[in-house]
Write a protein that binds this DNA or RNA. Structure first.
Lengths: 252, 252
DNA sequence: GTCTATATCTGGATAGAC
DNA sequence: GTCTATCCAGATATAGAC
């Protein structure tokens, strides 16, 4: 995984961060190989993907606690005993999943601050970037949201802190825009949490968006434009020429 | 439970719907007394409250599946055997909770349509009313949101349908306002789902709002004003004299 | 590395005394 | 109506063969 691309669009994001395929699963393997008995990457990576994917299928439909390791064994085609070569325990499996996701998010979010983008571009990058990341890692996000209660206190805490940090970045961009006169906003904290809520919907309410045939592109655009309306952004500001349409122009 | 008050404010809402105290728990008892062995209301109501409340405490911190009936027995002070005089089975308990909540919401939501309010007043009623209801029934909402996966398919379906119906009401009010020229809105469906998301946050993210010391009044107002901004509502429309400030004036 | 077989335990549910 | 004692299915986890 590298860093945020300079030109931010879903395509360039796709190239910059490997959130699927061989590359991604290899990095997952690297992240917690110290916890498993299997040392050969060649064998481990394939089985890891099987185990994680099956866990998502099962846990995201019936719940992690309700899912038994027998279910998981059946779904993956790996025997009960075999599973324990990859995971320390059932609870450990959930912990690892949370760890990998948080680690990944932290890299992405951390990379954002480095860029020192203009407020408007920064907000756009966050919204589109997060929708993109959630889209790719949807089962991971959903799993962690729903199973957070079952994880160790420390991980619960860290998840909350990450969410606060994320909103902090949003808030800073908003405040900077307010300071420079581009935006008007009475409740930056609440507006930031509104955006977080909308982004989280993208994995929490997949059923709804599928039912209504709403794509990620359309949704991200809505969230961003809705945010601009709440910021009473009219397209005039320090950059003068920018307006909503222009801000989206380079996206498909 | 009666109906929506004519003058809609949190206080009048409070009087119109009994969502707490003796009256509320009596109605809960009425709703599923046919499923329990205990016939005397006098004894049953108190124990029901104990059982439900304890379930929320336990399930909302460790998860319903992770909570054992032995935990519940300890927390309520009722023996294992005793519990089974009140609930048919562990799963039944979750089902009953969902049933009671949905029933209650349906009464409240159903009462809304009856009023034939002006779009602006209708939206305001929905936002403030829902925040109020969620505030009072917070553990119920949270429980049903998090444990939905574990419930019978039929109940899952009905929950989704209720959410769609709720958003339908929001959408209709928005569209009516657009038709009459008060509002401008390109994506009524998405805007309605934005409002739903914000309302659900009120129980999903209690930790955040407590941490930031944000009260329900302040939050409801933010959601409503944010909605108006997205509707590009300027206070001029069929009623002429209305503006945002006026629309909120009668609330504390 | 992977499997089968098994030890051990937890938790839902019930029977029957009081 | 409520409790104690008990049954038993099903779950996690491990030992040891291949």
């Amino acid at each position: 995984m590298a860093a945020w691309p300079i030109e931010i669009s879903m395509e360039s994001f796709n190239e910059a961060w490997a959130l699927e395929g061989e590359t991604f699963w290899r990095s997952v393997f690297e992240m917690h190989k110290h916890k498993m008995e299997i040392k050969s990457p060649k064998i481990a990576i394939g089985n890891l993907e099987k185990i994680f994917s099956a866990t998502f299928t099962l846990a995201n439909t019936k719940g992690f606690q309700a899912m038994s390791l027998r279910d998981l064994s059946r779904e993956t085609g790996i025997s009960m005993g075999g599973l324990y070569a990859y995971i320390g325990s059932k609870n450990d499996l959930a912990s690892v999943i949370e760890g990998v996701l948080r680690n990944t998010i932290e890299q992405i979010v951390g990379g954002l601050s480095a860029h020192n983008l203009e407020p408007l571009q920064c907000l756009r990058a966050i919204v589109y970037g997060e929708i993109f990341a959630i889209e790719k890692l949807s089962p991971w996000y959903y799993f962690c949201f729903m199973e957070l209660k079952g994880l160790p206190r420390e991980q619960q805490q860290q998840t909350l802190e990450l969410e606060l940090r994320f909103e902090g970045i949003l808030m800073d961009a908003i405040l900077e825009g307010v300071a420079s006169g581009q935006f008007i906003c009475d409740h930056p904290k609440l507006l930031a949490s509104q955006v977080t809520a909308q982004l989280q919907q993208w994995h929490l309410k997949q059923w709804k968006f599928k039912l209504r045939d709403i794509g990620k592109q359309e949704y991200a655009q809505f969230v961003f434009e809705s945010l601009l309306k709440c910021l009473e952004y009219s397209g005039v500001g320090i950059e003068g020429s920018n307006n909503t349409a222009a801000a989206n122009s380079e996206l498909p």
